[in-house]
Amino acid sequence: MAEVTDLREAVAGLVHDGDAVALEGFTHLIPTAAAHEIIRQGRKDLTLIRMTPDLIYDQMIGMGCARKLVFSWGGNPGVGSLHRFRDAIENDWPVPLEIEEHSHAGMANRYVAGASNLPFAVLRGYVGTDLPKVTSTIAPVTCPFTGEELMAVPALNPDVSIIHAQQADSRGNVAIWGISGIQKEAALSARRAIATVEEVVEELTPHPFQIVLPAVVFDAVAVEPKGAHPSYADGYYDRDNVFYEAWDPIGRDREAFRSWMEQHVLGTENFGEYFRSVRGEGMVAK
């Protein structure tokens, strides 16, 4: 049952070195605050799982938290490349990064299988592409009923999944509305789950396209206002494009990256302090 706690305690207790960790959010509700807390606590050797690794995985990879990345699309959405991700793959900096690469459909189905406690999922795809040649977790399987050949992908069961949501109620039930992406499957496929939320309300009220993940799904719920910045939280704030564009030159340069992370992430106690720090640098849209 979810305990409403603070993020530092949640990460300290639930995210361990060497874990397979999924921080999901399909360009909406990206759990930035949680990623920063993992960096602050110096986690190492993580297998990072995410369909769309973007700025937060660029930061975690650049800070040497990851040993392996499982993903389907890695970029700075709307801007360009992830330079830390590329530097790790192209030049092994700061540490070599093993990759396991899928398509979105493959990753989505892997989470579904994980959430369903099945060993694998089947889909029509990958045939004729070079992905099965480089990714060992794609293999053909024959339908026992029709004889059709399909592709199988193994379940994803992260040690811990972390999502950001708009609200939790006081009992720890978590509400997401708008684009909910893959967060439900990420949370339900994980051995442990953490939600950060914009706020805790007494009673959840309906919103368009809302899903509610019951408190029993989570081990911890922590309040982190603006915790998805620079992505957006429908009903709370918009995507901060200024930040996404400002990230490009920082991520491009190893020194600039390190000193930025040291000043704003390692040099702050929590996400609120971090946010004031980057706002002071003009990296946040007015």
Binding site: T27, A108, Y111, V112, G178, I179, I182, E185, P208
Partner: peptide, 23 residues
């Protein structure tokens, strides 16, 4: 600006999960 931009959900007929859109 991105695939999950809020303007896509704002006036959509429906918003479904990622597994649902692909499957």
């Amino acid at each position: 600006l991105s695939i999950g931009d809020g303007v896509l959900a704002a006036h959509a007929d429906s918003v479904v999960s990622v597994p649902e859109i692909f499957n």
